[in-house]
Nucleic acid binder design. Sequence first.
DNA 1: AATTAGCACTCAGTAAGAGAGAGTGCTAAC
DNA 2: GTTAGCACTCTCTCTTACTGAGTGCTAATT
Lengths: 344, 344
Amino acid sequence: MLTERQLFLLQLLVNDYIVSAEPVGSRSISKRDDVHYSPATIRNELADLEEMGYLEKTHLSSGRVPSEKGYRFYVDHLLSPAMLSDLEMKNIRDAYRRKFSETEELIHVTAELLSEFTNYTAIMLGPELLEMKLKHIQFVRLSGNKGVMIIVTDSGHVENRVVTFPSEIKAEDIEKIVNILNEKLNMVPLYQLQKRLNEEFRDVLRRNVSNYEHAMTLLRDSLEINDPEQIFYSGKSKILSQPEFQDIDKVISLLNVFEGKDLIRELMNMPPGGMHIRIGKENKLNGIEDCSLITTTYSVGSELLGTVAVIGPKRMAYPRVITLIDVLSNLLTKSLSDRKENNK
Amino acid sequence: MLTERQLFLLQLLVNDYIVSAEPVGSRSISKRDDVHYSPATIRNELADLEEMGYLEKTHLSSGRVPSEKGYRFYVDHLLSPAMLSDLEMKNIRDAYRRKFSETEELIHVTAELLSEFTNYTAIMLGPELLEMKLKHIQFVRLSGNKGVMIIVTDSGHVENRVVTFPSEIKAEDIEKIVNILNEKLNMVPLYQLQKRLNEEFRDVLRRNVSNYEHAMTLLRDSLEINDPEQIFYSGKSKILSQPEFQDIDKVISLLNVFEGKDLIRELMNMPPGGMHIRIGKENKLNGIEDCSLITTTYSVGSELLGTVAVIGPKRMAYPRVITLIDVLSNLLTKSLSDRKENNK
DNA sequence: AATTAGCACTCAGTAAGAGAGAGTGCTAAC
DNA sequence: GTTAGCACTCTCTCTTACTGAGTGCTAATT
């Protein structure tokens, strides 16, 4: 169990290291106005904290640096959320007052604010398209034997496919099929569409539609939805100005993580709800052992969730980032639901 | 005017420097099997080439390095396109044999091949949406007073907008309007839509539609198309493994260029047609003074152009990159037009 | 019993110097 | 015109020495 004084010193040390990025020595702590102990006393306490695993030294006679356990303790018990200045809050609110013609724009602006105000890299993960539910399908005939299949989801997202239908099928037939689908597949998640199509509609279609095989192929093609991983970054280079990224190899492996979309999905896969903080090796992924990741979710519509994240060095300004990510994800959710209201 | 031997030596030196990234000395040139001059002779020639501005030294007694003028001369007069091995050609062709459900996928694959085979960073710039021409508009009513405005362009791109129409307007009215637009605005470039709407349709609509003001607002909103800058990168970190990017500040300023979409548009703005090579400071843009950029175009449909580019260090394997960018942009164009054929 | 002063010790970082190696320019010989 | 020879220059690397920040431990002080 840690004493009051140890808690106090640990907090000071982490705070100090977060801004300085230099190992913190006993003397520099002792010189602070709010500390009345001599360097020797502090050394003793720090030695104890090190023994318990909260601190580390970079070499035998260096100052101390928080260990991952130290950061974890700091984040769990010692940190108080930062306040944003009035000016900052004003700037943020103003940024959301603009009129956004696309949902995407709103997400991009949020990412930009987040990276701008934290000075780290912001990552936005859109909701998985495949998780959305079908609200409406419509087939629109264009010229010749081309048409657009329009798929509207419950959260208001619209997908379209240009399809060419073989001359064996009549446009009216397609419309007829789509009407049947509309009736039967309402609120079915998109990832189930193919399966349902195969299992339930073979017979229905065979009975109702001439040229049934052609129709099935057409439907299969137009309902094959492949998830465009909606990942957006802002301030990718910000994180690289941090002193821990002097090493070019670290930069490269981090950028590789950013480039591989699968890796990012995996990284950001968190238990639902609330805010999550992963420190250093808690991120089970090569290339970001020295980074911390803070994530939370924003919602689009009633249940569909996207993820907001900030990635920075382990030595991250946790209080400030936590506050900012909280404020911004809430504003984003609010703006998105306002949009939905207006659209009704 | 350069002598035969000077041409020959300049070529050797650039080739050598491209692979080694080290200043080239007279001795190492002299040792080659295809060179029969002594180091001293070569030194004399190199000194002349330096005087003429084709070569530089990194310090007083170092070997020589091509100057930008030297690279320019090399690119314009000395370089012969590289051959790809049969295996490489096979790999490339195979990659295109896959079935692509989206045009975007095809573009991504091209970018990946390009960065993979060159080991530099590939940049793909999609055609400007606003340059496309209107082929077809359709309004589809969804539930309530919502609908989708579908805009199909001549190159087969489909845009959609979910719109909420005020209860003052009837869905039939909208359909009526859209029919008029369809007739009159066929093949009008998207960027002119708003203007045409304002100039020509005020009167037409006023005559034909009740609640004309509401209708205008609705149309304005749904035809307001903001260009989603279609930029795609592959192998962003590849260029950073080049020895000239040891300096972290260079990395940061390069990544900043990548992040700012305007900058990239500006950078890749080349006179139309053919292949363009910009060496070092010929790129009038901060942050890439030490890079070379090779661009060419690919076409979608009859006239719409996208840009393919490779960005690497000035010391770039020009012959190979030129060949690859040529082969791949042609394959891309071919695949895209095949798709179009099939879609007819 | 807790705190602190004092001191020997460790280690990173910097600076200076020495030597090796690669390369040059110039002169004189071939 | 070409080349051998040589003095010279500059980078790079390795050593050595020194400084400064910081530590742990012991003994004295409160």
